[in-house]
Amino acid sequence: TIDDAFRAIERAIQAENEGRYREALKHFLDGGEMIVTAAEKEASQKVRNLLLHKGKEVLEWAEHLAEWILE
């Protein structure tokens, strides 16, 4: 659900702030994927587009974090 997705993102932010970057990455990926999944089930085109945009933002952040971890 969207609530689960945002809880995962909150955990990711907390982990990132505490320097637990790999854990943060996992939570960002989980949250982003949950948002995209919820968007695919959404009946309203406007809400679907907003959710897809937010999911994409979260997944892009996860990608940047992963690249930073690997440096």
Rank of each mutant, 00 (worst) to 15 (best):
H64N: 07
L51M: 04
G31I: 14
A12V: 03
A5K: 01
G19R: 03
L65T: 00
E57Q: 15
H53I: 14
R48F: 06
H53M: 14
G19K: 02
D3V: 12
W68R: 09
A43H: 13
E18V: 08
N17T: 10
K46N: 09
R48D: 04
K26P: 00
E63T: 11
I35G: 03
K54E: 03
A24Y: 05
A38M: 14
R48T: 03
Y21K: 01
A8K: 10
Q45P: 12
E16V: 15
A15Q: 01
A62I: 08
R48P: 01
N17F: 11
A15Y: 10
E33H: 15
L25R: 03
A8I: 12
G19P: 02
E42W: 11
H53Y: 07
S44E: 11
V58K: 00
R7T: 06
K46S: 11
W61R: 07
E63L: 13
E40L: 15
I13Y: 04
S44P: 03
T1N: 11
H64C: 11
E23W: 02
A8E: 13
G55E: 01
M34W: 09
L65Q: 00
H53G: 11
D4M: 09
Q45A: 09
K56M: 12
H27A: 06
W61G: 00
E10H: 11
Q14E: 08
S44R: 07
G55D: 02
N17Q: 15
I35E: 03
V47E: 05
I13N: 03
L50Y: 11
L51Y: 06
R48M: 06
I13S: 03
A12K: 01
G55I: 13
G31S: 04
A12P: 03
L65E: 01
K41G: 11
I2P: 04
T1C: 10
V47L: 14
E16H: 15
L52G: 05
I13H: 04
L59D: 00
E33C: 13
A24M: 05
I69N: 01
L29P: 01
A8C: 12
Y21F: 08
A39L: 12
T1S: 11
K46M: 12
N49E: 14
L29A: 02
N49D: 12
E42N: 08
M34I: 10
R20D: 06
L29K: 11
A5P: 02
N17Y: 09
W61F: 05
W68Y: 12
G31P: 01
I69P: 02
M34Q: 06
K41R: 09
R48Q: 05
V36G: 08
D4Y: 06
I9T: 00
L59I: 07
L70Y: 10
K41C: 10
A62L: 10
L50V: 09
R22S: 10
E57N: 06
E57H: 11
Q45N: 07
I35R: 01
E71T: 12
R22W: 12
R11A: 07
N49C: 12
K54G: 04
L70F: 05
E71N: 10
V58L: 11
A43S: 12
W68T: 04
A62E: 00
E23Y: 00
E33I: 14
I9S: 00
A39V: 10
L25S: 01
E16W: 15
I9L: 07
A66Q: 07
H53R: 15
N17C: 14
G19A: 02
R7D: 05
E40W: 15
H64R: 11
E71V: 09
I9F: 07
K54V: 15
G55N: 03
F6W: 08
F6D: 03
R11W: 07
G32H: 15
A12T: 00
L25Q: 01
L50F: 07
G19I: 03
Q14V: 10
E60K: 13
S44G: 04
E42T: 11
R11T: 05
E10Q: 12
R22L: 14
R7M: 07
D4L: 13
A43P: 13
L29W: 10
K56Y: 11
G19F: 03
G31K: 03
D4S: 06
D30F: 12
K54W: 15
I69R: 00
H27T: 02
N17S: 13
E40P: 03
R7P: 02
I69Y: 07
E67P: 00
K26W: 04
R20T: 00
T37R: 15
D30Y: 10
K26G: 05
Q14S: 08
D4I: 06
Y21H: 05
F6H: 05
V58I: 13
H64P: 00
E60V: 04
I9A: 01
L59M: 08
A66D: 03
Q14T: 08
D30P: 01
R22K: 11
A8Q: 09
H27L: 15
E71P: 04
A15K: 03
A43I: 14
E16I: 15
E23L: 02
Y21L: 06
M34S: 05
I2K: 03
W61C: 08
I69F: 08
R22H: 10
K26I: 11
E16N: 13
E71Y: 08
N17L: 14
R20I: 00
F6Y: 09
E10T: 12
